[in-house]
Structures are given as structure tokens and as C-alpha cells.
């Protein structure tokens, strides 16, 4: 979170009708000011793009012990970069972290974890203000500690703006940002750290 206008108490302002009104109004304002037009047509929580700044407050919602411990590992991975990640609850939270037995059907079939942008800076450049991260215990509950750490590193990596790494782009086979979670890859590699740092 970056501005006081974006507290949870103000999230009612983020309803679709209000967003459309605000987008139009802010576009008009910026045009009046002679600045470059904003991406007002965007209108939604579209991007799971990079975070809006390096300060990263993480809030855990009643996580299992394994998920909580793994998240602390992932937080430490973020702190290897320019990100300043800490646990904090409340209106300034940047990453909302949940776990549940979400099941093994539909959009959760074969999926151990999921991250999306809950609130992006739609009025400006689409950078993400608040992410939502979910661990699917229907699969992850079988994980050992390093698989859990790989999963948490991976999902938190998305909240730092990282995308997936393919095998040919990870020849050392040591990035947690590969598409498949693997206990042998619980950490960011140097390339991941550089990529986060280059975002800011």
C-alpha cells in the first residue's frame, strides 16, 4: 500500500461502477493538467505485474504451521533483493496470504499455489498494490519442508514481479520460479534477485 487513499476502509471505492467513474474522472484531470494520459481504459485488477514499491507488508490469515513456516522462508528470500519484506497486519498490507483445502477440481486441479493482483494501481500504470496468495493444501499438505519452501518462494516471487522460468533459462536448475514446484529448488537464484532489483 502506498497512499492513505487506499486503506481497506476505502475499498468500497473500488467497486466496479466507482472504478469506472474514478478512471474517467482521473483521466479528465490528467488531461486537463497536460500530462500523459493514464491507462484509464484498463479498469480492473488486471495485472499481476510488479509491486508498486519495495516495501512489502505480508499478512498471514490463520495459516497452518507448515504454510506459515514456509512463508517466513519466502519472506527471507525476498529480503535477499531490494525488497523490504516484513510481517504486518492492517490497512497497509501488500500481500494477503491464505491457505485452505481448495480441492482438486476446476481451476484448482493440479495447482499447488496461486497468486493474483487484488488491487492494482489502475489509475496509473497497473503496478500492483495488493496481492493475494493462496496455498492449496489439497496438494501441499503432502509436502516436505523443502517443497513447501519452494512453493512459498515461488508464490512470493510473483508478488515481487517475477514470472516463470523455463528449464532452458534455468540451466543451473536452482530457481524456485520454475513452473513446477520441486524440493530441490527452494530459493531464488542470482538471476531472480537481479530481475527483482531491476524492477525498481
Amino acid at each position: 500500500m502506498t497512499t492513505s487513499t487506499q486503506s481497506k476502509a476505502n475499498r468500497a471505492l473500488r467497486s466496479r461502477p466507482m472504478r469506472i467513474l474514478l478512471a474517467t474522472a482521473s483521466a479528465a484531470l490528467v488531461l486537463l493538467a497536460g500530462a500523459a494520459p493514464v491507462q484509464a481504459s484498463h479498469g480492473g485488477d488486471a495485472n499481476s505485474g510488479p509491486p508498486d514499491n519495495t516495501t512489502h507488508y505480508l499478512e498471514r490469515f490463520n495459516l497452518t504451521r507448515a504454510a506459515s513456516g514456509a512463508t517466513t522462508h519466502g519472506l527471507g528470500q525476498l529480503d535477499r533483493s531490494v525488497m523490504d519484506a516484513t510481517y504486518a497486519d492492517g490497512p497497509e498490507t501488500d500481500v494477503l496470504i491464505y491457505d485452505a483445502y481448495y480441492g482438486r477440481t476446476g481451476s484448482w486441479q493440479g495447482i499447488a499455489g496461486r497468486t493474483n493482483c487484488q488491487e492494482d494501481e489502475w489509475w496509473w500504470d497497473g503496478d500492483c498494490d495488493v496481492y493475494r496468495l493462496r496455498y492449496n493444501l489439497s496438494y501441499a499438505a503432502s509436502y516436505g519442508i523443502d517443497s513447501w519452501r519452494s512453493l512459498a518462494c515461488h508464490e512470493l516471487g510473483h508478488t515481487a514481479g517475477l514470472g516463470h522460468r523455463s528449464a532452458p533459462s534455468d540451466t543451473d536448475n536452482n530457481s524456485c520460479m520454475r513452473n513446477k514446484i520441486d524440493s530441490s529448488r527452494p530459493r531464488f537464484d542470482a538471476h531472480d534477485i537481479s530481475a527483482i532489483n531491476a524492477t525498481f
Binding site: 497512499t3 474514478l22 482521473s26 489509475w123 514481479g161 514470472g163 527483482i196 524492477t199 525498481f200
Partner: peptide, 24 residues
């Protein structure tokens, strides 16, 4: 693209706050 996002800087907080407040 497989690799993360290009470098970019956000707007100044003051400008963002002004635009948001004006929009409201």
C-alpha cells in the same frame, strides 16, 4: 515473456494522491 518485467518507475506519491483525491 519468461523473465520479469522491464524496469519502470512509479509516479510520485504526491501526484498519485492528487489525482486520486481529485478523482474522488
Amino acid at each position: 515473456p519468461p523473465d520479469p518485467v522491464p524496469s519502470r518507475r512509479g509516479p510520485s506519491r504526491r501526484l498519485v494522491a492528487l489525482v486520486a483525491a481529485g478523482a474522488v
